[in-house]
Design a protein around this nucleic acid. Structure first.
Lengths: 229, 229
DNA sequence: TATAATAAACAATCTTGGCGGTTTTATATT
DNA sequence: AATATAAAACCGCCAAGATTGTTTATTATA
């Protein structure tokens, strides 16, 4: 691809989705929001397919079906796009996690082994979502990118808090908060490590086995916590 | 830094280490090996401090105290450096892991809770080694870099095998191989996930707690495996 | 002298951010 | 309602800087 000739927009409408009717009062604002959203979604797609380093402004614009000029209008610099994507993913990840956990939300009933197993499966699905992978790409890049670190740091902190709060809400049975936190750490460290180990052999069997072990220990921790009280 | 003016070597001798005496038989070959080694070490350093994307050939050469010309003589392309680093780290990581596990190598004695705990601590130290972090940088980049993927894929496969074999050698008590593999997966997925979660709050306490839980479940798996036989 | 190692300059490509100008939408005025 | 004006959104190009790999020249070694 030549450096001079700007990338041609390919799929503006397809990505932007339904357009609002013209000649309406707030069309401009809505159109602007649509473009903005298209850019964010395109950025996420690029992060997934190309990684942080290869996600250039030109590729984002092309993928979003927007000219580079338009893109620079909405986000004057590359880092500002990433900043917006971080916030965008922050919300989406929390929402998706809560949706996954909602299936097993039965705080009234006594805690069952089944419910615990379901929460583990939900966590596994969670780390395999595009939003998780894209965010992970940003997080990995932030290790050696001070600017990105400053952007993602506070977000990450807030996420962890809300992440844990969600678990607390789903499992109010766990009275011992310290042990719940420990169990929570176990789950998400394990799932994260498993997601980031691109297992090429017997992925399914291994992940199932690990999840079974994890479910067992969670039950044990819970039982032990209740005996103490 | 200008694009034209090549980066000036800064610390050749310091990084290269002791130079062999002149007028010796194989000085040239040795010198070449030293330069090569300096480049690999410098690359690892760059991966640690700057990440894969920002590890440019100019920075590697500068950090190694070598001119870019010299570097391109040894490694005609950037990817060839990375290729060499992958192999280099492959060996180093295995060696370091074995050293860490050597402290608890007591295959003659019956398996103790203490030995299990030590192996978990060794795994935790392992994922905090520079060699692990640098390798992880390459592995992460390989997700969206086909060429790197082809390089690192077979190496990764071989590493996992030898990694597991090492665990088997240290714990011959585990007769049930399937369960040992499961336990092994638990350990290294958990440690990996923990290492890649840049915990900013109560890192030490949380990691200790997780390691304690892990040790417990490992003992349980072991016990259960022995009951079955 | 022939070969290997190092150094320096160079060309080609990419990426970024900015700029001038155009079209579209919103608002004010009559 | 019609028109004028302001504001926002958008487009395409450019210049500066950076990175890579090549080539040419120099130095050291066998």
């Amino acid at each position: 691809m030549s450096a001079r000739s700007e990338a041609k927009p390919k799929s503006a409408v397809a990505i932007k989705g339904k357009r609002p009717k013209r000649n309406e009062k707030g069309w401009q604002a809505e159109k602007s929001a649509i473009t903005r959203s298209a850019i964010l979604e395109a950025t996420i797609q690029c992060l997934l397919e190309l990684g942080y380093a290869n996600t250039t402004t030109a590729l984002i614009a092309s993928s979003a079906g927007v000219s580079r000029g338009a893109m620079m209008h909405h986000f004057p610099s590359r880092m500002l796009v990433m900043r917006a994507v971080v916030d965008f993913l922050h919300g989406r990840r929390l929402r998706e996690y809560r949706e996954l956990m909602a299936d097993i939300d039965e705080p009234q009933q006594p805690l069952t082994h089944e419910a615990t197993a379901k929460s583990v499966e939900a966590a596994w699905r969670y780390v395999n979502l595009p939003s998780f992978v894209a965010y992970q790409e940003l997080l990995a890049a932030s290790r050696t990118d001070l600017e990105l670190q400053q952007v993602i740091g506070p977000v990450e902190k807030d996420f962890e808090k809300q992440f844990l709060d969600t678990a607390k809400a789903v499992f109010p049975h766990w009275k011992n908060i310290a042990r719940l936190e420990g169990a929570h750490d176990m789950v998400h460290f394990l799932m994260k490590g498993m997601a980031l180990s691109h297992m090429d052999v017997r992925k399914k069997a291994r992940s199932k086995r690990v999840m079974a072990y994890l479910t067992t220990i969670l039950s044990d921790i819970y039982k032990e916590a209740n005996l103490i009280e």
